[in-house]
Amino acid sequence: MATADPRLRSRAQQQQPAPVAPPPPPPPPAETTPAMGLDGSGDAPESSGTSSDDSFKLKFCTVCASNQNRSMEAHLQLATAQLPTISFGTGSLVRLPGPTINQPNVYNFNSTTYEAIHKELADQNTQLYTQNGLLNMIGRNLNIKKYPERFQDWMPGKPRLDHKGDQGYHGTESGVVDVIFTCEERCFDAVLEDLHNKGGRMNRPVHVLNVDIKDNHEEARVGGQAILDLALSLNNAASEERKARGETGWDRGSGGARQGFDEKVPEIVAAWQERWPTLPALWSLAWF
């Protein structure tokens, strides 16, 4: 597992049938019921538990290339488990499959809403994008938050007060997280490089963990379950450290409890890897 301080070295640069009337986007789900996933299941995501409303909660971030499939499935599962969660993509643009491999659908981050993407694809070819699962995926996404966001445009520590409608919003208002989950190695590299470039001005530690997930509907669902399992393990360890050593300095990323938690993370990841041996993991400590 990677252990180098990203502030001390740079990472490498990353890398026709006539359409029928389009269906309307699905309505928002009840707060305790997640939107239907890409596998067609309306059941709540499987997990090893949830974080109760009155307990301490780590703050999480999920990241994939376009903030569409893997990061959004993980975002949904973490938020459904009552964990504070935000999500991003690391690509230069949002890219989704088009009518051919050479004709992707391309959108801007931070401004093009999931609702607008859903409408455009439904207008373009409802049958095609229903068959390949894109409309289901984007219908799920628009019930989680308003639009895909780019990690490199995020300013850690800037309040996220305009995201009150996002699932997992409560606890993320300050714009700081404790753990970042990426879903493939190139996103892991991009996140570490961007944090290095931002200079760690807050001098606050953040654990960056990559869970390698194939970019398809079923693997995203399973990967989301694995990320939730790891998140709950990390959250339990943080809660135990705070109870044993007190909360002093935690919000600044310092103090005995925070140090004890940081030291436990590698062994928690190792134990998780034994439970999920088919999902290779990487870990690094970085700074905001």
Rank of each mutant, 00 (worst) to 15 (best):
E173I: 01
P99R: 13
S92A: 12
L93H: 07
E241C: 10
L161Q: 03
R242L: 15
G91K: 00
P45A: 04
A238L: 10
N197G: 14
H75F: 09
G253A: 08
T248I: 10
P22Q: 02
I213Y: 03
P28Q: 10
W154I: 00
F151T: 01
D229F: 03
P45D: 07
P29S: 06
Q273S: 15
P6G: 02
L76G: 01
C64K: 02
D54M: 10
P22C: 07
P97L: 14
T85V: 10
A231W: 00
T85K: 03
A12T: 13
T3G: 07
Q127R: 13
C61G: 06
K198A: 02
F56G: 08
R275S: 14
A231Q: 12
K243A: 14
N203S: 14
G223M: 07
Q77D: 13
T62P: 02
P24A: 08
E173P: 06
P28K: 01
N102M: 12
R221G: 04
F56Y: 15
P19K: 04
S111V: 08
L230Y: 04
L195T: 00
D166R: 00
D166F: 03
P34W: 06
E184C: 03
P25L: 10
G165E: 07
N102Q: 15
Q259S: 11
G37R: 04
V222R: 13
N67V: 00
G175D: 01
A286G: 09
Q82W: 02
I180F: 00
P99W: 13
Q225A: 13
L38Y: 11
L228G: 06
F181V: 05
E263L: 14
S55C: 15
S10D: 14
A220E: 04
D178N: 11
L279C: 05
L135G: 02
G253C: 10
Y147W: 05
G256P: 06
L58N: 09
K243T: 12
L134V: 08
Y129M: 01
R7A: 10
L8E: 15
I268V: 15
P45R: 02
G253D: 09
A18S: 09
V211I: 15
T112E: 09
Y114D: 03
